[in-house]
Design a protein around this nucleic acid. Sequence first.
DNA 1: ATCTATATGGAATGTCGTTCCATAACAATA
DNA 2: TATTGTTATGGAACGACATTCCATATAGAT
Lengths: 237, 237
Amino acid sequence: MMCQNGDMARTRGRAPAGGRADALSQEIVVGTAVELLDEHGERGLTFRLLAQRLNTGPGALYWHVANKDELIALAADHVLGEALADAPRPEGGVAGLRALAVTVFDALDRHPWAAFRVTAPATLEHTLSLLDRIGVLVTQTGLPAERHFAVATAIFNYITGVSAQIISPAVTVDPSVHRDVFLAETAAHWSRLDPAAYPFLPHVTEALRDHDDRDQFTTGLDLLLTGLTATTRPPQR
Amino acid sequence: MMCQNGDMARTRGRAPAGGRADALSQEIVVGTAVELLDEHGERGLTFRLLAQRLNTGPGALYWHVANKDELIALAADHVLGEALADAPRPEGGVAGLRALAVTVFDALDRHPWAAFRVTAPATLEHTLSLLDRIGVLVTQTGLPAERHFAVATAIFNYITGVSAQIISPAVTVDPSVHRDVFLAETAAHWSRLDPAAYPFLPHVTEALRDHDDRDQFTTGLDLLLTGLTATTRPPQR
DNA sequence: ATCTATATGGAATGTCGTTCCATAACAATA
DNA sequence: TATTGTTATGGAACGACATTCCATATAGAT
């Protein structure tokens, strides 16, 4: 599964110099897939539907994409590419890490299906690019070189993994039920739990109902980054 | 989608007092599903195969489980339940949080398909239990009450989200390629990248090849927990 | 014995990913 | 301008799957 694109730069999908006017390309196929995924979610994307929108047959798509897994992986990478293009460059160090993380979260929040499909260790273009940019910023923090990989990967995993968790209700749950309704129902469920078995949850139903996803993301992120600076500059007695 | 079990405790699946000897139950169905998921992964689990192993037809399973999504969600919750049963209870505070997190990671590592299926906000029994136990431990750290929800959720999201990311290659990639081979190939890929576009990655290929998944999990976890203690006791000048 | 809710299991349905292949469009040759 | 080979297309066909349907069985209650 999953691309295994390997070495040989595949010419596939690159429209030949003097191709026809209505020529497909991997870029077009993936771009249209992103539209469809935004509209109907992962389950709603079918090769038939995609082919229909591109005025072709399902078979033609397989010239540009190996299978549905690769298509979705490429679509998710495409989303990440847009996010990175928008990401601010100026800041360095921990502030830059925070800004980059939030930018990526926002992008995944706009394309909920993508969050689950960005995976480590990276092999796709923009996923690699994200990890590399995190690595560069980590390098700037003055951490010893032997920790660069572990810390950069930890931050990458936090961004993609936690984003996926926070966004998951939008994907897992029936999309027809809105966020507020879902949270209200879940809060009601928590409030009905037996306090002997669940001493904590009944106390935080209000916080569940009112919380903001982005704040939830930055709460953990800031803990992580605080821990990072605390490690970088050991506690000044 | 997804349970919506609602209130009414469903009698379904509970074998009636004097049922037949070969009676099914939700517990049996889910337990067998866990076995099959461990053996063949999420794609390899089919209702036909599950029915065959239980000496029944596919239709019978739908009496105990609404659909495949619910089945897998229940199976993942089952895994979490086992992990929590094994989890050490003694320690409290930050040390207890760390121990609990690692226990859950190990369980998900043994059942890679489950990591992607544990989602927040929780509605299933053991997922709720995990979040609650995290909450209790967070309460013990002396954090102000208004931060309890945000911090407990952040830790929950870290555990489940980052575990899923770290374990993902075992699920996403063809299971026939072993971890070492996959990492070696990815490392080779990184080493061939253009250093102008990717200044960081080529330097850490060795670390990628040699890293340990559990260490990767604890690296970020310890950063997060360090940040937590730094927040709890503000820096003592 | 009869009745009814619970539970079963195999057959039928429809949708999907994917494969296949006959054909089209174009580029390079002659 | 014909010819040939490669690149690309698109629609039909295949096989697997989740899910539904329904005729039947089981066991407790009457």
